[in-house]
Design a protein around this nucleic acid. Structure first.
Length: 751
DNA sequence: CCGGCTGGATCTTAG
DNA sequence: ATCCAGCCGG
C-alpha cells in the first residue's frame, strides 16, 4: 500500500529540508512559484510514511476550498490511497468542530451560517428600528467593523472597552446584532472562528482533546491569517510546537478582511526554537518577469526579504501598452491574444487577463464576444449568491430554523403572495421581540382579512414542507420547495429563463451532493454551500459554440485577488492606472499602498512566459469618463525590462479583425504569411528590442516593421518618440529606445 | 398589495 | 452604467 516516494529526486535541497524537518515549529518562507504546495503535500506524506503519524491526526488548513481539495488530491496521489487527513479550510474546520464539540462549550450545534448579504440585511434592520439614518452611516461599514472585531476576538463589550471604533453607534449596533444572532442561532463567518476559539479558551478539556486529536498542524498561506486564526493555531499547537506554517509576506493581500502579515513575523517570537526554511528558487517565471516583479515588490519596506532566482531563460521583455480608452485597451488585448494564438502557438487557455475590480470585466467580455475569443470568468458573482438560488436556500433555512428572521424576511413575500411590507414587518418584528418561531408569532398575531388568509396560506405550505424535512430526500424536498412556494411558476411566468436554469443547476448540485453523501441531510447540504460559496459556473463566452474551440480552451478573466495560487504562460494585467491600481478606495496610507503593491506582485508572478501590462488614458466608469495617469507600479518596473507603447490620442483604434459573420478575418497585420514580422515564436529568444533600433535614422514617412504590430508608416518623430500609423490603422506612439522596431527592408525582413 | 417608474447615489478586493 | 429607495397608479 505504501508508495515509495523519492524525496531527494522530486525536491530541491531547501524543499527537502522543509519536508524532513521535524522537532520544532517550522516556518517556511515560500516565494512565489517556489513549490509551496509541493512542499506541504510531500511533508504530509513524509509525516505519515517516515514519522509514522496517523493520517487522521494531521490537520492541514487552507483558505479556499479549491486549495484544500487540490491539496487533498495531491496528498492522496502521493501516498497512493485516500489517506484520511483532515484537510480543510479554516472556516469549515471551525464549523465542523463546532458541530461536533460545540455542546461542550455552550454552542447550539444547529446554527445556521449567514453570509455578508445577510449580515447587511440584519444591520440595516437594526439601524432602521433604531432610527439611524442609513445614509450617513453605511450599513456595510458596520458589517465590516463587526467582522474585523470578531477577527480580533473582540465581542461588543470588548471592543467598546478597547476603543475599537471612534463611532459610539457601532457598539450599540454590534450589541444588538449579537443579540439577534444569539436568539436566532445564526453564525456569521467570523463567529465560526470566534466561537471556537472562545470555546477552547474556556474549556481546557476540549482544548486538550483537540490537541490529542491533531498531532501535527500545517497552515497554508499563513500570511493571510487573521488574529483569530492565528490564535486557533496557537491553541492547537502550543507549547508542543508540532506545526508547520507556510507563507510569503510579499503575497499578503487580504488585509481588508483582517489578515495580518505580522503573524508571519510574530511566529518565531511565539514559538520557541522556530526553524525557518526559505524557498527561493522560482520554477515558474522567465527571468525578466521575475526580475521585474522583484523590483516592484522591492519598493515595500519591512519585508522579510527573499532573493528569488530562476534557472529559466531570460524571456521577452514585459510589454506596456497605454490605450486611449478602456475600449482601446480591450482591443489591444484582443489583438495580442489573436497574435499569440495564431503566431506563437499559445492556446487560449494559456492566457489570463487580470484586473483589479470586477467591473473591468464588462468591456473585456463584450469585446471578446465580438472578437469571438472564448473566455471564462473565474469568480465573479458566485452561484450561491444569486438571488433565486439564495431565495430557495432561504426557504430551506427557514424550514430548518424557524427563528431565522433573515431567511423569513427574504422569502415571506417572494414570490408576491399578497403579503406586503406592513404584514411582513409585523411578523418579523414580533418574531424578534419574542424570540419565537415565525409560525407561533402569527398564531398570536390576529390579522384581519384578507391578510390573515394570505399569511395562513404561507404557513400551510411551510408546514407541509416542514413535514418533508424528515421523510423526503433532499432532492424531493427541493422539488417541493420549487412547487409549493410557487417560485418556479413565478419565474416561468416572467420568462426568467436564466434564473430557472440556475434552479436546475441547484437541483443538480443537490443530486451531486446526495450521490457523494448517500446519507446526507438537507442541513448538511446547506452547510456545505454556505461554506463553499463555490465559483460561478463558467459563462460561455465564445460565439455560441461554433465548435471552433474545444470546451476547455478559453482565456481566463480573473480579478487579481482570485488569481492567487494560479499560473499562466501569458498574463495581461489590465487597468494599470493610478486610482484603479492602486485603487483609490483602498486608501492612501503607506500600508494601503503596500498591500496594493503586493497585489501587483502577486499578479506579475503568476506569469510564466509573457507579461503584458495595459492601461487606458481615459476610462468609462459609472457613466463618467475618467482620465487617469499611469500606475506608479509601471514606473517601478526597470525601464530596461519594459517595452512601452501608447495609442495615439488622435485616432481611435479601429477594430478590423472580424467581420462579425464568418469569424476571424485576416487583417493587414496578420495577412503577411507566417513569420512575416518577427522571429518571435514561442520559446525562441525575442528580437532584442533595445538593440534593434538605432534611434536614428527613422524619419517621417519611413516604412517600418514592429515586432508586434507589423508594418506601418512613421507619421511624426519628436525626440525619443515616434508616432507610427500601422497598416491596420492603429496609430501608436513609441519610445524608440525600447521599441522592437526596424525599417522595412532591413536584414531579415522576409516576406 | 404590486409593479413600474423616477431620481439620486454610487464607486474594491472576498471566504 | 447600474442599483436602490421611494412614490404612485392600478
Amino acid at each position: 500500500m505504501r508508495k515509495k516516494i523519492k524525496y531527494e529526486d522530486d525536491l530541491n535541497p531547501a524543499q527537502v529540508e522543509a519536508v524532513r524537518y521535524h522537532g520544532s515549529p517550522l516556518l517556511v518562507l515560500a516565494g512565489a512559484g517556489s513549490g509551496k504546495t509541493r512542499v506541504i503535500t510531500y511533508k504530509i506524506a513524509f509525516l505519515i510514511n517516515e514519522y509514522g503519524y496517523d493520517p487522521r491526526s494531521i490537520l492541514a488548513v487552507t483558505f479556499t476550498n479549491k486549495a484544500s481539495n487540490e491539496m487533498r488530491e495531491r496528498v492522496n496521489a502521493l501516498v497512493g490511497h485516500d489517506a484520511g487527513c483532515w484537510i480543510s479550510t479554516f472556516h469549515s474546520t471551525a464549523a465542523k468542530l463546532l458541530r461536533i464539540y460545540g455542546g461542550e462549550v455552550g454552542v447550539d450545534a444547529g446554527f445556521t451560517i449567514i453570509d455578508q448579504e445577510d449580515q447587511t440585511a440584519l444591520v440595516k434592520r437594526i439601524m432602521r428600528t433604531r432610527g439611524i439614518d442609513p445614509e450617513e452611516r453605511k450599513p456595510k461599514k458596520y458589517v465590516s467593523l463587526i467582522s474585523r472585531a470578531k477577527d480580533s476576538l473582540l465581542d461588543a463589550e470588548d471592543s467598546e472597552r478597547s476603543d475599537f471604533s471612534t463611532d459610539p453607534l457601532f457598539y450599540e449596533i454590534y450589541k444588538q446584532y449579537e443579540k439577534l444572532l444569539e436568539t436566532e442561532n445564526l453564525f456569521d463567518f467570523g463567529d465560526l472562528l470566534f466561537r471556537l476559539v472562545r470555546g477552547l479558551q474556556r474549556s481546557n478539556t476540549l482544548c486538550e482533546a483537540l490537541k490529542r486529536r491533531f498531532r501535527y498542524v500545517l497552515v497554508d498561506e499563513f500570511q493571510d491569517t487573521n488574529h483569530s486564526q492565528y490564535v486557533l493555531v496557537s491553541l492547537l499547537t502550543l507549547p508542543d510546537g508540532n506545526v508547520c506554517v507556510v507563507g510569503d509576506d510579499d503575497q499578503s493581500i487580504y488585509g481588508f478582511r483582517g489578515a495580518k502579515v505580522e503573524n508571519v513575523l510574530n511566529f518565531k517570537k511565539d514559538y520557541a526554537g522556530t526553524k525557518i526554511v526559505r524557498l527561493e528558487e522560482n520554477y515558474r517565471s522567465f527571468q525578466n518577469i521575475l526580475t521585474a516583479s522583484s523590483s516592484v515588490i522591492g519598493n515595500n519596506p519591512g519585508r522579510l526579504g527573499k532573493t528569488l532566482y530562476t534557472k529559466k531563460q531570460e524571456g521577452e521583455k514585459l510589454f506596456f501598452y497605454r490605450a486611449a480608452t478602456d475600449l482601446g485597451e480591450a482591443y489591444y488585448i484582443v489583438r495580442e491574444i489573436e497574435r499569440l494564438v495564431r503566431r506563437e502557438g499559445y492556446r487560449y487557455r494559456d492566457i489570463a487577463i487580470f484586473y483589479r475590480i470586477n467591473a473591468q470585466s464588462r468591456v473585456l467580455e463584450s469585446t471578446f464576444t465580438q472578437a469571438r475569443i472564448p473566455y471564462t470568468i473565474v469568480g465573479g458573482l458566485r452561484f450561491y449568491e444569486r438571488e433565486e438560488v439564495k431565495d430557495i436556500l432561504s426557504y430551506i433555512r427557514l424550514l430548518l430554523n424557524p427563528l431565522d428572521e433573515i431567511a423569513l424576511g427574504r422569502v415571506i413575500a417572494k414570490p408576491p403572495r399578497g403579503i406586503g411590507s406592513r404584514t411582513k414587518e409585523a411578523i418579523i418584528e414580533a418574531t424578534i421581540a419574542r424570540g419565537l418561531p415565525y409560525y407561533r408569532v402569527v398564531e398570536k398575531n390576529v390579522f384581519s382579512e384578507p391578510r390573515a388568509s394570505r399569511v395562513h396560506e404561507f404557513l400551510d405550505f411551510m408546514k407541509r414542507l416542514t413535514s418533508l424535512l424528515e421523510s423526503a430526500s433532499p432532492q424531493k424536498l427541493l422539488e417541493e420547495v420549487y412547487r409549493e412556494t410557487g417560485y418556479s411558476e413565478w419565474l416561468k411566468k416572467q420568462g426568467k429563463e436564466e434564473k430557472l436554469h440556475n434552479l436546475e443547476e441547484l437541483y443538480n448540485a443537490v443530486e451531486e451532493f446526495t450521490r457523494k453523501n448517500p446519507a446526507g441531510t438537507v442541513a448538511e447540504f446547506i452547510e456545505e454551500v454556505s461554506l463553499d460559496q463555490g465559483s460561478a459556473e463558467p459563462r460561455p463566452g465564445d460565439g455560441e459554440g461554433e465548435g471552433r474551440t474545444s470546451a476547455g480552451d478559453r482565456v481566463f478573466l480573473i480579478t487579481l485577488h482570485n488569481a492567487k495560487g494560479l499560473e499562466f504562460p501569458v498574463v495581461f494585467m489590465a487597468g494599470m492606472e493610478e486610482g484603479m491600481f492602486p485603487h483609490f478606495l483602498s486608501g492612501d496610507r503607506p500600508e494601503d499602498v503596500q498591500e496594493e503593491r503586493r497585489l501587483c506582485y502577486v499578479g506579475m508572478t503568476r506569469a510564466m512566459e509573457r507579461l503584458f501590462l495595459t492601461a487606458a488614458r481615459s476610462r468609462r466608469l459609472y457613466g463618467r469618463n475618467i482620465e487617469r495617469e499611469v500606475s506608479m507600479f509601471i514606473r517601478e518596473v526597470p525601464p530596461t525590462l519594459l517595452v512601452s507603447a501608447e495609442e495615439s490620442r488622435l485616432e481611435s483604434p479601429r477594430f478590423s479583425y472580424y467581420d462579425g459573420e464568418t469569424g476571424p478575418v485576416a487583417s493587414a497585420r496578420f495577412g503577411q504569411g507566417k513569420k512575416a514580422v518577427t522571429g518571435q515564436m514561442k520559446s525562441s529568444r525575442p528580437v532584442k528590442a533595445g538593440l534593434s533600433l538605432s534611434p536614428l535614422d527613422i524619419k517621417v514617412n519611413d516604412r517600418v516593421v514592429h515586432a508586434s504590430f507589423g508594418r506601418g508608416t512613421v507619421r511624426e518623430v519628436s525626440g525619443e518618440t515616434a508616432l507610427i500609423a500601422f497598416d491596420d490603422e492603429t496609430v501608436m506612439k513609441f519610445m524608440l529606445k525600447y521599441t522592437p522596431i526596424r525599417k522595412e527592408g532591413d536584414d531579415e525582413d522576409r516576406r
